[in-house]
Computed example of a mutant assay.
Amino acid sequence: MTKNKSWLHKAGEIAIEILIIVFAISFSLFLERQREESNDQKLEKDFYSGLTIDLKQDREQLQSDRKFFVNMSHAFDYFKRMSDTTKLNADSINVNYNYLISSSDFVSNSAHYQALKSTGKLSIIENKELLNQIISLYETKIPILISSTRFFNDKKEHGIIAYAESHMRMGKNTNITQVMSDPIAKNYLLTGGYITQIINNYDDALKAVDTVLAKTTKEED
């Protein structure tokens, strides 16, 4: 009987020790989770702050680039209307020709998004709707915009720009009306139709930026 009591006593002590160990491990894991959650919350807040700055810079550039392409569209229309009998205006020619031969490429300020993505920590963003909108902006909207502008710039460089530079004289004795009235030039100028889609892509990107920016600003508060 004494032996049984002794065994039960030892078993009780072992059970208590096991419970203490289990509690210690559980409590340690709890504290670690709390620490990780706290770190993730700080990282999320810092991400929103940085992203807001990036988005404001992107918005400014998007608006500027969009205006540039609107003016470029006007330049294409200007030269498409040109004929041998067009009365020349030096200022109008210079302004429109500069837009015709110039290019613009959007460069996104995506440093904070790319940094968080590279660490595999995008999941720390608790607002999943916002997360999906951020991903859509940087993985869909902006890439489509950049792809469309690069495609158009390449077509323009090897089309109307190359043709104009090899056939046109500028200055007092310019032959610009003859060059731009040529059927080959008119055909190249038809590529200006791409600009409408590019402007639409800028509008889509701007709308997405405004949507995300409104929410990241709110999340910062």
Rank of each mutant, 00 (worst) to 15 (best):
T2A: 13
H9L: 12
I20W: 09
I21A: 13
V22E: 03
F23E: 05
A24Y: 08
I25G: 00
S28K: 10
F30W: 11
S38D: 08
L43G: 01
E44L: 04
K45V: 05
L55H: 03
K56Q: 14
Q57D: 13
Q61I: 07
Q63T: 15
Q63P: 08
D65V: 03
V70M: 10
M72Y: 02
A75N: 00
D77N: 15
K80R: 11
R81W: 00
K87S: 13
S92N: 12
V95N: 06
N96A: 00
N96I: 00
Y99L: 05
S104A: 12
N109V: 04
A111S: 14
H112A: 08
H112D: 14
H112P: 07
Y113C: 03
Q114I: 10
K117Q: 07
I125P: 01
E126M: 11
E126A: 12
E129Y: 08
L130P: 06
N132D: 10
I135Y: 03
P143G: 06
I144P: 08
S147Q: 15
S148D: 12
S148T: 09
R150D: 06
F151S: 11
F152N: 03
K155E: 10
H158S: 11
A164T: 07
N173A: 09
I176K: 00
V179A: 05
S181N: 06
S181D: 01
I184Y: 13
N187V: 11
L189H: 03
L189A: 10
L189V: 10
Y194F: 07
Q197V: 14
Q197L: 15
Y202W: 04
D203V: 07
A214Y: 02
T217N: 05
